[in-house]
Simulated assay, not measured.
Amino acid sequence: MIEQHQIGEFTLVTLLDGMFLCDGDFIPAAKSEEGAALFKSVGLPAVGPSPEPINAFILKRGEQIWMIDAGCGTELGPRFGKVPSALKNAGYQPEKVEGVILSHLHEDHIGGLINQKGEPHYPYATLYLSEVELAFWTDTASKTAYPKLVESG
């Protein structure tokens, strides 16, 4: 199923990369009584996991095709990496993607930029990233202040 929304001149298409199973270790508040009640209220076991989609998005205006994020590729395991095929199933070609807007540089947003051979999935796309995000990841102080985040990012 392809989820598509029209927003003025733009078409936004959701591309499912895979389902991440969030448990109480990933969402500490889920281990509370309120968390257990919330899980149960939506038909999940009291301790989870909660299936959470990892998505990328097509943003189309006229003939211009852009993406917002790229999914995680296979960074989180073999259940993921479905964005390129979802893009094609939605009727778009990777070679036509002009730009990829990266919300931030966590693996579930950028891992899908390249295939397992290290080649770009979107060979003609320009990557866009905020200056603040770039500054964080290139600042040597980040390695000291956030070692686990920078090592995994």
Score class of each variant (00 low, 15 high):
residue 22 C to N: 11
residue 13 V to K: 09
residue 14 T to W: 01
residue 125 A to H: 07
residue 63 E to A: 10
residue 84 P to E: 11
residue 3 E to M: 02
residue 18 G to D: 01
residue 15 L to Q: 02
residue 4 Q to T: 14
residue 54 I to D: 06
residue 68 I to E: 04
residue 87 L to A: 10
residue 75 E to T: 13
residue 35 G to M: 02
residue 20 F to I: 00
residue 114 I to N: 02
residue 7 I to Y: 06
residue 42 V to Q: 07
residue 17 D to E: 06
residue 110 I to N: 05
residue 126 T to S: 12
residue 31 K to T: 15
residue 4 Q to C: 09
residue 147 P to F: 06
residue 134 L to G: 01
residue 92 Y to I: 02
residue 121 H to I: 03
residue 101 I to L: 15
residue 87 L to P: 05
residue 104 H to G: 01
residue 68 I to F: 10
residue 60 K to C: 11
residue 20 F to N: 00
residue 86 A to P: 13
residue 1 M to E: 00
residue 116 Q to W: 01
residue 49 P to H: 01
residue 131 E to Q: 11
residue 117 K to M: 07
residue 97 V to N: 08
residue 152 S to N: 15
residue 81 G to W: 08
residue 46 A to L: 03
residue 121 H to Y: 15
residue 100 V to W: 02
residue 10 F to C: 04
residue 24 G to H: 04
residue 103 S to I: 14
residue 33 E to S: 11
residue 109 H to R: 14
residue 153 G to Y: 10
residue 131 E to Y: 02
residue 146 Y to N: 14
residue 59 L to T: 02
residue 141 A to Q: 15
residue 17 D to N: 04
residue 127 L to C: 02
residue 56 A to S: 08
residue 75 E to N: 11
residue 63 E to L: 05
residue 112 G to E: 06
residue 28 P to D: 15
residue 86 A to S: 12
residue 99 G to E: 13
residue 121 H to K: 08
residue 107 E to F: 04
residue 152 S to M: 14
residue 85 S to W: 07
residue 137 W to G: 08
residue 6 Q to G: 03
residue 22 C to H: 13
residue 57 F to S: 07
residue 78 P to V: 13
residue 19 M to R: 01
residue 101 I to H: 09
residue 49 P to A: 00
residue 82 K to C: 08
residue 120 P to R: 11
residue 151 E to V: 12
residue 47 V to P: 00
residue 89 N to T: 08
residue 140 T to A: 13
residue 51 P to N: 06
residue 11 T to Q: 05
residue 4 Q to D: 02
residue 2 I to E: 11
residue 77 G to C: 04
residue 112 G to S: 09
residue 35 G to P: 13
residue 49 P to N: 01
residue 99 G to Y: 15
residue 41 S to L: 10
residue 28 P to C: 14
residue 122 Y to Q: 10
residue 140 T to E: 14
residue 80 F to D: 06
residue 83 V to D: 11
residue 82 K to P: 07
residue 100 V to K: 03
residue 56 A to G: 09
residue 128 Y to A: 09
residue 98 E to S: 13
residue 120 P to G: 11
residue 14 T to G: 00
residue 65 I to H: 03
residue 114 I to V: 12
residue 128 Y to E: 03
residue 101 I to D: 05
residue 132 V to T: 12
